[in-house]
């Protein structure tokens, strides 16, 4: 029982972290129709800037948490203005390929400046203690902090999008960009703003995830494709879908890693007999398969199934 509770908390932390990335990505997608491959790279930049600001420049972890996302967001907006908009005229495939190249480039630039090694970016000391324990398992204060930050961002985002004037304009620009432009709003500027905010959100995720999951040049690559999976599963362009999918994937990977469900038990349960000499059997790999072994790839399986059977995603309204 204890372990289930702990897993629920851990899955929530990871799911909300995914949400901070996927919310920005899904906003950008629904507005501009661009699947931004470089989104996780902005997450990585957030972590590196957070490290640089908080430890080397000495403005503290909270200072980094505030300043680093702003830098990332401004950088994102500039890339939209001077890069993406240039490519936009050629169509969607070159746009996608542009962000793909950008992801490669950002990774190389990070390596050039910070090197290949994992950098010593740690939680601030005042959050680095066990807040409470469930059984033997300690829950660190930092995890609780991560939950609150993500929830605050989700609340803020929801408020801005549904209750403020700028949110209304953004929503309108999502569906009828031409009409909104005719009403005198500067749609390219809104696009740039949304891209900037989306990348800044990724930056926030980077600053708080950097100490917890490690800050190294491969961090964007390991998380990059899973963010795509999240927004595709949730439904492209749907904020609630992104939240639902993030939590689903967070819990799916957490529980899959925790429970040693073995294929051997399932197969014998189905009435098959385990071969005596494993190495001769063509199915040896099937027999030895366990759930933790495949846990991290389950989201991809989920995505393929969703795309085949429900292409608009869980809560999406339109097909990708």
């Amino acid at each position: 029982m204890d372990l289930i509770l702990v897993n629920l908390i851990d899955g929530l932390v990871f799911g909300l972290l995914l949400f901070m990335l996927s919310s920005g990505l899904t906003l950008i997608f629904s507005m501009m129709g661009v699947l931004n491959f470089a989104h996780a790279s902005f997450y990585m930049l957030g972590a590196y800037f957070g490290y640089q600001l908080s430890t080397v420049l000495g403005i503290g972890f909270i200072g980094g948490l505030i300043v680093a996302p702003i830098i990332v967001g401004v950088g994102g907006a500039l890339i939209e203005r001077y890069g993406l908009r240039q490519v936009h005229q050629y169509g969607h495939v070159p746009e996608l390929i542009f962000t793909f190249g950008l992801a490669l480039l950002i990774q190389e630039v990070v390596k050039l400046f910070w090197g290949q090694n994992q950098i010593p970016y740690f939680e601030p000391a005042y959050l680095d203690f066990a807040l409470f324990s469930v059984g033997d398992n300690a829950i660190k204060a930092y995890k609780v902090f991560m939950i609150f930050i993500s929830l605050a961002i989700f609340g803020g985002l929801l408020y801005i999008l549904t209750k403020t004037r700028i949110g209304m304009i953004i929503q309108a620009a999502l569906s009828y960009p031409k009409t909104v432009e005719a009403l005198g709003h500067n749609v390219p500027f809104i696009f740039m703003g949304v891209f900037g905010v989306g990348t800044a959100l990724a930056g926030v995720a980077g600053v708080i995830a950097g100490p917890a999951l490690g800050t190294f040049p491969g961090m964007a690559f390991t998380l990059g494709s899973i963010v795509f999976v999240t927004i595709v599963v949730g439904g492209l362009g749907s904020l609630w879908g992104a939240l639902l999918a993030s939590l689903l994937i967070g819990w799916l990977t957490t529980f899959a890693a925790s429970y040693n469900l073995r294929m051997e038990d399932i197969l014998t349960g189905l009435g098959m007999t385990k071969p005596e000499v494993m190495s001769d059997s063509m199915l040896q790999d099937l027999w030895t398969l366990t759930l933790p072994q495949v846990g991290p790839i389950l989201p991809y399986l989920l995505m393929v199934l969703i795309l085949v059977f429900r292409p608009q995603g869980l809560l999406g309204k339109r097909e990708a």
Binding site: D2, D10, F14, L213, I226, S258, N260
Partner: peptide, 12 residues
């Protein structure tokens, strides 16, 4: 991406 669930199981 996150080794926490594996760690939980080990502690448990």
């Amino acid at each position: 991406k996150d080794f926490t669930p594996y760690a939980r199981k080990i502690v448990a």
